[in-house]
Computed example of a mutant assay.
Amino acid sequence: MSSSKVFTLEEVAKHNTKDDCWLIIGGKVYNVTKFLEDHPGGDDVLLSSTAKDATDDFEDVGHSTTARAMMDEYLVGEIDATTIPTKVKYMPPKQPHYNQDKTPEFIIKILQFLVPLAILGLAVAVRIYTKSEST
């Protein structure tokens, strides 16, 4: 088949079953229906990559040069890249510092100072008391 045909994502997305499976890899469209049963990773792997740009899925696996050479046999055309949504990097929303028990910040800071001071004072008092007991 000629690779001069240009498809939209919507057109390619309709081919998403075991009886009719098309993939988009590297800007090209492949009809892999006849290859589903022979795919070493199983047909589910290919079917899960339909209706989207599967280039990253394909590259992440690290296919051999033999596998890449086989692709020409299944080529049906090219994808109109303008029909594929651009990837947006996820940015989590800014969130204020989480204060689980809702204690005001100034109380926490005061306690961070006073608790160690109280422990030190208690240790000194015990030391003085035990010295006075022994004499």
Results as ranks from 00 to 15, higher is better:
Gly121Thr: 11
Asp56Ala: 12
Leu114Lys: 14
Gly121Asn: 10
Thr82Glu: 09
Thr8Arg: 00
Ala81Met: 15
Pro85Ile: 08
Gly27Thr: 06
His97Met: 13
Asn31Phe: 03
Thr17Ile: 03
Gln100Val: 13
Ser49Trp: 05
Thr86Ala: 12
Met71Asp: 05
Leu75Lys: 12
Thr17Met: 02
Leu47Asn: 01
Leu114Thr: 15
Gln95Cys: 10
Thr83Ala: 06
Asp101Lys: 12
Glu73Trp: 01
Glu78Thr: 09
Lys34Asn: 07
Leu46Cys: 02
Lys5His: 06
Asp60Ala: 14
Leu120Glu: 02
Asp101Trp: 09
Pro93Leu: 09
Gln100Arg: 14
Val126His: 04
Asp101Cys: 09
Met70Pro: 00
Ala67Leu: 04
His39Lys: 04
Asn99Arg: 13
Tyr74Thr: 05
Pro96Gln: 11
Ala118Trp: 14
Ala123Gly: 11
Ser132His: 11
Leu36Arg: 04
His97Cys: 06
Thr33Ala: 05
Glu59Met: 15
His39Leu: 09
Ile107Tyr: 13
Tyr90Gly: 06
Glu105Leu: 15
Asp60Gln: 10
Thr65His: 12
Leu47Lys: 00
Lys131Glu: 10
Asp56Lys: 13
Pro104Ser: 10
Val6Glu: 07
Asp72Pro: 02
Leu36Met: 07
Lys34Ala: 11
Leu9Met: 04
Met71Lys: 01
Gln95Val: 15
Asp101Ile: 03
Tyr30Gln: 03
Asp43Thr: 08
Thr33Ile: 02
Asp19His: 11
Pro40Val: 01
Met91Ala: 10
Lys94Ser: 12
Ala13Arg: 07
Gly41Phe: 00
Met71Arg: 03
Thr135Phe: 08
Tyr74Asp: 02
Met1Lys: 13
Glu73Arg: 12
Val12Gly: 05
Ile25Ala: 13
Asp56Asn: 11
Lys14Ser: 06
Ile107Ser: 10
Asp57Thr: 05
Ile79Phe: 05
Tyr74Phe: 15
Thr65Arg: 13
Leu46Asn: 00
Val88Ala: 15
Val115Asp: 06
Val6Thr: 07
Arg127Leu: 13
Arg68His: 07
Thr103Asn: 10
Thr66Asn: 07
Thr82Ile: 02
Val76Ala: 06
Lys94Met: 11
Ser3Met: 06
Lys28Tyr: 10
Asp44Gly: 15
Val32Thr: 01
Glu37Gln: 14
Gln100Leu: 14
Pro40Met: 01
Val29Ile: 07
Leu120Thr: 11
Thr135Met: 07
Lys109Gln: 09
Asp60Tyr: 05
Ile108Tyr: 09
Ile84Thr: 08
Ala69His: 05
Ser49Lys: 14
Leu9His: 02
Lys87Gly: 09
Glu11Lys: 10
